[in-house]
Amino acid sequence: MRLEVAARVPERGVDARLGVEPGSTVALLGPNGSGKSTLLAVAAGLLRAPDATVTLGEERATVCQDGRTWLPPHRRPLTLLTQDPALFAGMSVLDNVAFGPRARGLSRRAAREQARGWLERVGASSLADKPAHALSGGQAQRVALARALATQPQVLLLDEPLSALDVEAAGAMRTLLVDVLRNVTAVIATHDLLDAAMLADDVMVMHEGTLAESGPRAQVLTRPRHDFTARLAGRGLLRHADGTLSAPRPGQVRLASGDEGLAGTVARVEAHGESVRLWIDVEQGTLACDVDPVTVDPRLLGRGAAVRCTVAAGTDRYAA
């Protein structure tokens, strides 16, 4: 079902709208504090903003909230999964998953029946009889996902669902989400490019409480229009004299010697596995360049170092 959210929350500096097409997944991409969680909380009904509209569906839409209508969270046909699984302690895993169906009025037996199905869906059948507090972080988040799915929401909202997990658990959970989110209408708020790349059909980039740019995943991530989108996508961004943009990947940028290429200064230095990524401010914008920290001149690894770099020929140029 189509979800539309528009919210102005001045006290959190948020003024943005968000739309998801039926059956598709939107990644709400942005750094912490950019307003992603606020938008999702408004959609779920956990935050009552005076100036907000939330509708579900097209013509005869379910109005969750507008100037006159206010549906409390439990009447909204959507659910929210956050980074904190918040399983109900003192209940078994199975009863946690059965919670939504029970709240809907199903008998304990029928609710548990359904819950078993959902646990199987997330590959956690073996946990059914464990007490909720005995799970690891990754297991708990899997169960929380099953518990959310068991409510059979029209729209599934995910707020940084992987950010509290260790790398291994996050990877397994991401793989599970790829499967689960197929044909489900979902919004996933994340600051991780990988989540957007693997899970989303469309990407909306949030910056300082507003929507900076949006579009199909490949377009937004390979042809960014804003510096922070390029940064999130791990690319540089150059604004050319003819009004076009290019976003070279780090692999397309090399440090140069002599007076070749573009002059710039090192703005940030980040460790990336075995290499070091330099973010270099140049006259036309920013470039990212991966260097080997062992072989490179150590003086170039400091902030403010003057460097020159070249961009590989044939880097994609696109209209601003």
């Binding site: 009904g45 956990l46 439990h74 904190d84 919670f99 029970r102 709240a103």
Partner: peptide, 24 residues
């Protein structure tokens, strides 16, 4: 926190009070 989660899972105030809040 758990009451909010219960609400997003479709539990009304009474169900949440009796099944989540008072249990905790």
């Amino acid at each position: 926190r758990h009451e909010e989660v219960a609400a997003t899972l479709g539990a009304g105030p009474w169900f949440t009070l009796t099944h989540v809040t008072l249990r905790r």
